[in-house]
């Protein structure tokens, strides 16, 4: 039951954009200094992050399919509720409730994302109806036995990383900015990540994760984007492949719901026992 330990928010690169804010024109053809490349990398990430600003609250159900190297599958279904906080200097609040596997039905994880400090996390164990405050130090550990580390699904707040723009290149039918980002927070399992962000709607399409030794560990793909309220993009299929173990974990999202009127009072330890 303890293995749920820390998880935060399930939104890589997601927080949204303020429409129409300063789009940077491309400096791609000009020779530029290293700090300009860092600034450009940050701007690409910020544009992605801000494309999600203002969503307020959301809820989505998803299925997680874990596959080992031999192809054997294991599944989990869960629901994620998110409350966006207007203040950009603090992260969002998230509540994850598990429906399956049946033995952990009703188990819930509440987290308050922080920028550089460790997140606040509580685990609800339905068998005992007990709420436990847990340590969130274990950022690089597996989330419910999957190929996602806690930090992969934790709040992908803009200021958690430093950035360098690498290049632009085609990604499928779109054109992407390729940006390297390096965690600024403690206890990460990664030296760097390389992300592909499209230049059309500014959404993440792919992330490569490099381990503590600098070797390629995992590749994540974001597919099946849908637009909600003419403003908010959400990927409905996330694929994560571990190149070192041959295991993979794919997430299949159902439709998102927005504007549910969720409030701070829905993201408190006292609300955990009423989730099922």
């Amino acid at each position: 039951m303890l293995r749920l330990k820390r998880l935060k928010q399930f939104n890589p690169f997601n927080h949204v954009i303020l429409a129409g804010v300063l789009m940077l024109t491309s400096f791609a053809h000009l020779p530029v200094a290293a700090e300009d490349l860092d600034q450009k990398g940050f701007d690409v990430a910020a544009r992605n992050d801000r494309s999600d600003r203002g969503f307020g609250d959301s809820r989505v159900e998803l299925e997680m399919v874990l596959k080992n190297a031999a192809g054997a599958e294991s599944r989990r279904t869960l629901e994620i509720s998110t409350l966006e906080l207007p203040d950009e200097s603090v992260g969002d609040k998230n509540l994850i409730v598990f429906f399956t596997p049946a033995d952990i039905e009703g188990t819930a994880l509440l987290s308050y994302a922080k920028i550089l400090d460790p997140d606040d996390q509580w685990l609800y164990l339905p068998a005992l109806k007990r709420v436990k405050r847990i340590s969130s130090k274990n950022k690089s550990g597996p989330f419910v036995g999957s190929e996602y580390a806690f930090e992969d699904i934790t709040g992908q707040e803009l200021e958690k990383y430093e950035y360098t723009w690498l290049r632009e290149e085609p990604c499928g039918e779109l054109n992407c900015d390729v940006v390297e980002r390096r965690p600024r927070y403690k206890d990460s399992g990664y030296t760097k990540q390389i992300g592909w962000v499209d230049q059309t709607v500014y959404q993440a399409r792919k992330i490569e994760y490099y381990d503590r030794k600098g070797s390629l560990l995992k590749t994540q793909l974001f597919e099946d984007y849908k637009l909600y309220d003419d403003k908010f993009w959400r990927a409905h299929v996330w694929r994560m492949e571990n190149h070192q173990t041959g295991k993979s974990t794919n997430l299949f999202y159902k439709d998102y719901k927005f504007n549910l009127g969720l409030k701070d009072g829905d993201f408190v330890t006292g609300a955990l026992s009423r989730q099922r």
Binding site: M1, R3, L66, S74, G141, P142, V144, G145
Partner: peptide, 12 residues
């Protein structure tokens, strides 16, 4: 002492 294996089977 608590050993959590963090495997697919949630062994502990």
């Amino acid at each position: 002492t608590r050993l959590a294996f963090n495997d697919v089977q949630d062994s502990s």
